[in-house]
Write a protein that binds this DNA or RNA. Sequence first.
DNA 1: CAGCATCCCATCGGATACTG
DNA 2: CAGTATCCGATGGGATGCTG
Lengths: 129, 129
Amino acid sequence: MPVQSPAPGAGLRRHLQEGRGNIYAPDCPSRALLDHVTARWSVLVLALLLERPHRFNELAGAVSGMSDKMLSQTLKTLTADGFVERLVSDGPPVRVSYRLTPAGTEVAGRIAELVEWLEENVGALLAGR
Amino acid sequence: MPVQSPAPGAGLRRHLQEGRGNIYAPDCPSRALLDHVTARWSVLVLALLLERPHRFNELAGAVSGMSDKMLSQTLKTLTADGFVERLVSDGPPVRVSYRLTPAGTEVAGRIAELVEWLEENVGALLAGR
DNA sequence: CAGCATCCCATCGGATACTG
DNA sequence: CAGTATCCGATGGGATGCTG
């Protein structure tokens, strides 16, 4: 193992080859996926679902400031992308819960690390400006 | 070290205490920081700066589809937040380069992991829907 | 080279009301 | 409970042109 490791992120610039996406190409599908998972509310929903599956109104209550409409839309997009699964229990009352797919768990884990770092360092950042 | 580790992201729900932010509170400053670093273009700029410092037009050329205006605005926001440093060399021609601060390196590293995972798995995701 | 100013529009997203 | 429909304002973001 070399002492001088390559710069982190050094592989990002490679173009499409052997099935790998290129986030810097505007029409690469990975760009759309990135936009979806980093969308304002997606980040918070994914982080919550990483803990455990949630029902619709659980999510609505947990994410303060989010409207039903945006929650519904966010879940629909994440489900279509294959990051979230929609599970319906036979009612009544009908109960719908949302849970991460394996791919969603991978993505949400990386997002949660970003979120947690920000939560832990927000104080230092505010102090330094 | 316990075999049963706590669920990833389990600490996200704690409220402000001992200086830690709470991303689920709409007016916690960490929410604004999250919005800034996950903004459409910020993600790509941060990932590029993780490789090495870049000059303005280098960034403009590397991020296909991004206008000068958005690059300028993105860099300004990230600089104000303390994630990016602006370095001016005495010209002419004047050359301005942008480089990550230590905090910016932390954030960009986490973002780059998300981006790289998406680039590597975009094929599988598209196939599965 | 490294921007800022202006114009303009498309999309994001909130409020409210309604449905199975 | 778990949404959908409609309306509408805010803002993200592109095109163009100008400046030091």
